[in-house]
Design a protein around this nucleic acid. Structure first.
Length: 485
RNA sequence: GCGGAGUUAGUCCAGACUGGCAGGACGUCAGCUUCCCAAGCUGAAGGCCGCGGGUUCAAAUCCCGCACUCCGCACCA
C-alpha cells in the first residue's frame, strides 16, 4: 500500500519521524520533521503565502499558542469542545454518552446536556453497556484541549485547539491600525494542539499539528458584492453535495445557486487554484458539503476540501461559514466593541474561514507524486520543482583529475540562493536515484569536458534526459526551472 | 479506551516453539575499477533484541506490567 511506502520514504530520507523515539514513554500523536521535510514544508507555506495571502491582499499574523481561559469560554471551546463520555465498569468500553443514550432510549439529546442529566436518564431507563450488559461509571466530560498552568499560582490556560482565536481577538486592533476594509482576510500559520483520544497514522491525526488558517471578515449584507469574483469565475470546483459529485465553474455554482454566495465561491476558487499548484491530483479532490450533524458547533455552512489517498478520503481544509459566532462571543465576554464601519454601515462582521491542515496536505502531496518507475528501476517524487526539498544536486562524475574541486566551486556559487546538495561519493547512477527519491528536479554533473569548455550537464528528473549548459548559465537555468508559478 | 496482531542495525526481516557467541539482505561509509543512470571487487561502521521488572547458572527467546506501531471498534469542532 502506498501509505506504507510513503512512511518508509519519510523515515529513510528525513521527511518526518516519531518524536522522542529513543524513549519508551514517548506518547503517540507527536511527530517531527527532518531536514527534507522542513525544506518541503517551508516551500509549501511559501506557496500558500503567495497564492492566498499575497494574491488576496490578506494580513498575516503570528499569535500565541497559549491563551487564557476567558478566550475559550468566549469561543465556546471550554463547553463545546468536550465530549460527554461514559465508561463501562465491567469491560471498560468507552462511549459517547449523548449518542449512546440517544440511540438506546430513542430520544433527542442536546449536545450541551449536563452530565448529571445523562446519568439520570441512564439510571431511569436502565441503560447498560451494549457489549457486556455491564453498568456504567458516572458520565464525565473529556475536553480535547490541553490545560496548562501559568506562573507559580498555576492559573488556568490552554494550548490553542485552533490558531484562529487570536485572529478574532486581534481583529479590532488590526482593522483600525492596518486600515482594514471589508471584506478582509487575516491569515495565520502555526501549531494547534488537541488531545486526541486515539491519534493514528502519523501526520494524519496528530496531537500537535500545523494549521494555516484564513479568516475572511465580511459584511453579511454584501456577500454577493464582490468585484474580484471575476478572477475565479472560470475556476472549476468538484462539488460533492448530498451524495452527488459535479464539476462546475465558480460562476455556474453561483448562477445555479449551488453555492450560497459569491464570497464563499470566490474563496473556494482561490483554494482550488492553490491546491492545483501544489501538485495534488485535482481529479482526486472534492469539496464536500457537510450535513447539519457533521458541522462544527460554530458553523452555519461548511465545506470540507477532501483528497483521495490510499487510505481513503482525507479532509485537508475545513471551509466554515462561522457567521458572527466568534466576534459576538468575544464581544460579549470582553465588553470590547467588535463592530466596524463598512462605508456607512456599522456592522459586526461575519467570518468565512479556510482552515487548512498543513501536515495532512504535505502527506497528500507526497502520495500523489510518488512513482515507482520499474523500467528504470527507481522510485521518484514528481514534486513541483518549487516545492522540492532540494532544488538541484551538484555532482562530480568522478572525484579525481580536479573534478571534485571544480564541483565544490560550482556548488559554492549556488548554495546560498538555492537548496543545493553536493555529492561526490558512489556511482553517478546511484546518486541520481537518491536525488529522485526526494523529488530533486535537477542534477548538475561536472565531468572532464567541464574543465575544457566550461560546460556541465543538467539531468532532468522526470525524463532522465540531459543537456549541456555553460557554467555561466547555471544560475538562470535553475532560477527559471525552480521558480514559483 | 476496548479487541486482535506486532516491536531485533537506517530499512525489510530470520532467530523465539525447544533459553546457551546477535544474524541476513538492502542501504550507509572508505577504497579500487579512469566511470552518465541503483553494475562489479575489497574493506568498515552500525544493536542494551521497545521499556521496566520477574524466573534461571544463563533470557532476544519463558512469565508479568507498561509504551509505541498497525488493523478493527469507538472517538475525531
Amino acid at each position: 500500500m502506498n501509505y506504507d511506502k510513503i512512511m518508509k520514504l519519510a523515515l529513510e530520507r528525513g521527511f518526518f519521524f516519531p518524536s522522542g523515539e529513543v524513549y519508551a514513554d514517548s506518547t503517540a500523536g507527536f511527530w517531527e520533521y527532518g531536514p527534507t521535510g522542513v525544506s518541503f514544508k517551508n516551500k509549501f507555506i511559501e506557496l500558500w503565502r503567495r497564492e492566498l495571502v499575497r494574491k488576496d491582499r490578506m494580513m498575516e499574523i503570528d499569535g500565541s499558542q497559549i491563551m487564557s481561559q476567558s478566550v475559550f469560554e468566549a469561543s465556546g471551546h471550554l463547553s463545546s469542545f468536550a465530549d460527554p463520555i461514559v465508561k463501562c465498569q465491567k469491560c471498560k468500553s468507552t462511549y459517547r454518552a449523548d449518542k449512546l443514550v440517544a440511540e438506546i432510549v430513542k430520544i433527542e439529546v442536546p449536545e450541551s446536556i449536563d452530565t448529571s442529566e445523562i446519568d439520570k436518564i441512564i439510571s431511569e431507563k436502565n441503560v447498560v453497556c451494549p457489549k457486556c450488559k455491564g453498568d456504567f461509571e458516572s458520565t464525565r466530560r473529556f475536553n480535547m484541549m490541553f490545560k496548562v498552568g501559568i506562573g507559580p499560582e498555576s492559573e488556568n490556560a490552554f494550548l490553542r485547539p485552533e490558531t484562529c482565536q487570536s485572529i478574532f481577538i486581534d481583529f479590532p486592533r488590526l482593522f483600525k491600525t492596518m486600515r482594514g476594509k471589508l471584506p478582509i482576510g487575516i491569515a495565520q500559520i502555526g501549531k494547534s494542539f488537541r488531545n486526541e483520544i486515539s491519534p493514528r497514522q502519523s501526520l494524519l491525526r496528530l496531537r500537535e499539528f500545523y494549521q494555516a488558517e484564513i479568516e475572511v471578515f465580511c459584511n453579511p449584507n454584501k456577500l454577493n458584492e464582490l468585484d474580484k469574483f471575476s478572477a475565479v469565475e472560470n475556476t472549476e470546483l468538484n462539488l460533492f453535495i448530498n451524495g452527488n459529485i459535479q464539476t462546475v465553474s465558480c460562476k455556474k455554482a453561483i448562477d445555479e445557486n449551488i453555492l450560497p454566495n459569491k464570497l464563499v465561491a470566490y474563496y473556494l476558487g482561490l483554494l482550488a487554484e492553490f491546491y492545483q499548484k501544489t501538485g495534488i491530483d485535482m481529479k482526486k479532490t472534492r469539496f464536500r458539503k457537510l450535513g447539519e450533524k457533521e458541522k462544527a458547533f460554530y458553523a452555519t455552512a461548511a465545506f470540507d476540501f477532501e483528497v483521495e489517498t490510499s487510505i481513503g478520503w482525507l479532509e485537508l481544509v475545513a471551509c466554515n461559514y462561522r457567521s458572527d459566532f466568534d466576534l459576538k462571543g468575544h464581544s460579549n465576554k470582553s465588553k470590547e466593541k467588535f463592530e466596524v464601519l463598512d462605508q456607512d454601515d456599522k456592522v459586526l462582521p461575519h467570518v468565512f474561514e479556510l482552515s487548512m491542515g498543513i501536515d495532512r496536505s504535505l502527506y497528500s502531496i507526497l502520495e500523489h507524486n510518488f512513482h515507482e518507475d520499474e523500467k528504470n528501476d527507481r522510485t521518484f517524487l514528481s514534486l513541483k520543482p518549487y516545492l522540492s526539498p532540494i532544488h538541484v544536486g551538484v555532482l562530480s562524475l568522478v572525484k579525481k583529475d580536479g573534478l571534485a574541486e571544480k564541483t565544490n566551486e560550482i556548488f559554492s556559487q549556488i548554495r546560498i540562493k538555492y537548496d543545493a546538495f553536493l555529492d561526490h561519493s558512489g556511482t553517478i547512477g546511484r546518486r541520481y536515484r537518491r536525488l529522485d527519491e526526494i523529488g530533486t528536479p535537477l542534477a548538475i554533473t561536472i565531468d572532464h569536458q567541464t574543465l575544457q569548455d566550461k560546460t556541465v550537464t543538467v539531468r532532468i528528473r522526470d525524463s532522465m534526459n540531459q543537456e549541456r549548459i555553460k557554467i555561466s548559465e547555471i544560475d538562470s537555468f535553475v532560477a527559471e526551472a525552480t521558480a514559483f508559478p
